[in-house]
Simulated assay, not measured.
Amino acid sequence: MKIRWRLRMAAAQREVWTGTELRRLLAEKAGLEMSSASVSALFTKEPSQVKMSTLAALCTALECTPNDLIEVDTTPVERPATPPRLVADTSQAVVAGRGRSMPPL
């Protein structure tokens, strides 16, 4: 499963072009004070995790839903077919006289 962070696109659709503008909106509309560095990181990078409260504040500030901010690719992952397991033929080892025997039945 692949997840794509679409904050910049959602912000651009609402004519928010910079992290500074987003930071101001978060404070004014959602009451969330974030550092410039944190807003910049959200705006320019794909985060590995986002707090639910931050996600809710982003949705409030941008007047959008989480679906506008996060795209999830639910295409099933194809796994390679497992090669068949090879079964050793132990009867030849006994015949060849190498001292090996068959396990008890």
Rank of each mutant, 00 (worst) to 15 (best):
V94K: 15
A11Y: 11
T44I: 06
E15F: 07
T75G: 03
E33Q: 11
G99Y: 07
D89F: 05
L55G: 08
K29W: 00
C64G: 07
E33D: 07
A27Y: 06
A11T: 11
S48L: 10
S53E: 02
P103G: 11
R85N: 05
T60G: 04
P80S: 04
P84H: 01
P80W: 02
A10C: 07
R100G: 12
L26V: 05
E46A: 13
P104Q: 08
A30H: 00
P103H: 06
A88F: 12
A11K: 10
T44W: 06
M102Y: 05
T18M: 05
M9H: 10
G97L: 11
R79E: 05
R6V: 01
L22P: 06
M1L: 09
K29G: 04
M52D: 02
T82L: 12
A12T: 14
M34R: 15
A57E: 01
D89N: 14
T90N: 13
L26C: 12
A81E: 07
G31K: 00
L86R: 11
E33H: 14
R14I: 10
E15Y: 11
V95H: 14
K2E: 03
L69S: 00
K2I: 04
W5G: 01
R98K: 13
E33M: 12
P66C: 06
G97Y: 08
N67K: 15
N67S: 09
P104Y: 00
L55S: 05
A27G: 10
S101Q: 12
A96H: 11
L22I: 14
L25G: 05
E28N: 09
E71K: 00
R85Y: 03
V16W: 02
M1V: 02
E71M: 01
P80D: 01
P103M: 02
E33G: 15
C59Y: 08
K51G: 08
E63I: 12
K45A: 13
P76I: 04
A12K: 14
E46I: 05
T20C: 01
A81F: 05
M9F: 02
T74E: 09
D89S: 12
T60I: 07
L105Q: 11
A93L: 15
K45S: 13
R79L: 14
E28W: 00
L7R: 04
V77N: 13
T82M: 11
W17E: 09
G97V: 15
C59I: 06
G31N: 00
A81T: 09
T75V: 09
S36Y: 13
T54I: 01
T20R: 10
E15S: 13
T90D: 13
P84S: 04
V95A: 15
A93S: 11
K45R: 15
L26D: 05
E71R: 02
V50G: 03
K29E: 03
D89W: 06
I70F: 04
M34E: 03
L42S: 02
S35G: 15
T82V: 11
P47D: 02
L25C: 04
R8Y: 00
T82E: 03
A61T: 01
T65Q: 14
L32K: 15
R98Q: 10
D73W: 00
T90R: 15
T65K: 15
D73Q: 01
R98I: 14
A57V: 03
E28Y: 00
R24F: 07
R98E: 03
T44H: 09
S101E: 11
L42F: 09
L7N: 07
A93Y: 08
W5M: 00
A37Y: 03
